[in-house]
């Protein structure tokens, strides 16, 4: 069972649709018992970093998620804001502490000649192939104005060229996260989700 964390930060419906399409059992929830009972945690989300942390706090989810992911080592997938929140610190719209599971911070794009947000389909360069081996194409849908800067390069699973090598994905142990939206990236995205959830095609 996958617990899709419901903390009032958008796009849970699309994530659930993709999981349902793959016949992955899931529940959208902020209920502590349901989250504890799940074997995989999925943190989706769009919106601002500070609002995201505030919403997690209000639902008393910060300690609980830490316990499930960092102590019990449950498999974790973070998408977009869900990837940014696992860092130590964000600045959107003001400086704010994150979940802090991965060392590093989230900063704003400062680009002279490129549009912000980074919006649309872009191809990634994979550094850690664990969950990317079954992707036939490497174009994914991005939509973000902030990007993560992990302290340890080893945590970077993929980068994307947008003026420079922007971190597109993170992986360390049971933690996997993507800045892009696999649930919106058609076949390439579904291929990642299949691999992550252990579905043999």
């Amino acid at each position: 069972m996958v617990a899709i964390i419901d903390y009032g930060m958008g796009n849970v419906a699309s994530v659930q649709k993709a999981l349902n399409f793959l016949s992955v059992k899931n529940v959208i929830t902020d209920d502590h018992d349901a989250i504890k009972a799940a074997d995989i945690i999925l943190l989706p989300g769009v919106g601002s970093f500070a609002q995201g942390m505030k919403n997690l706090q209000e639902r008393n989810l910060i300690e609980l998620l830490k316990d499930e992911v960092m102590v019990k080592k449950k498999k974790f997938l973070g998408i977009c804001l869900g990837m940014q929140l696992i860092m130590e610190k964000g600045i959107e719209p003001h400086e704010c502490e994150g979940l802090g599971w991965i060392e590093g911070q989230v900063v704003k794009f400062e680009l002279e000649h490129l549009n912000v947000p980074h919006m649309g389909w872009n191809n990634i360069d994979v550094l850690n192939n664990t969950y990317y081996e079954n992707c036939e194409t490497k174009d994914f849908y991005f939509i973000h104005s902030y990007h993560v800067l992990p302290k340890n390069k080893i945590d970077i699973a993929a980068t994307v060229d947008y003026g420079f090598d922007v971190v597109a994905s993170i992986q360390r142990g049971n933690i996997f996260a993507t800045q892009f939206h696999p649930e919106k990236s058609q076949n390439a995205g579904l291929a990642i989700l299949k691999t992550f959830f252990g579905i043999n095609a």
């Binding site: 769009v46 947000p117 104005s145």
Partner: peptide, 8 residues
């Protein structure tokens, strides 16, 4: 924008 983020 403050509530939902620029991107949406």
């Amino acid at each position: 924008v403050t509530f939902f983020g620029s991107q949406c």
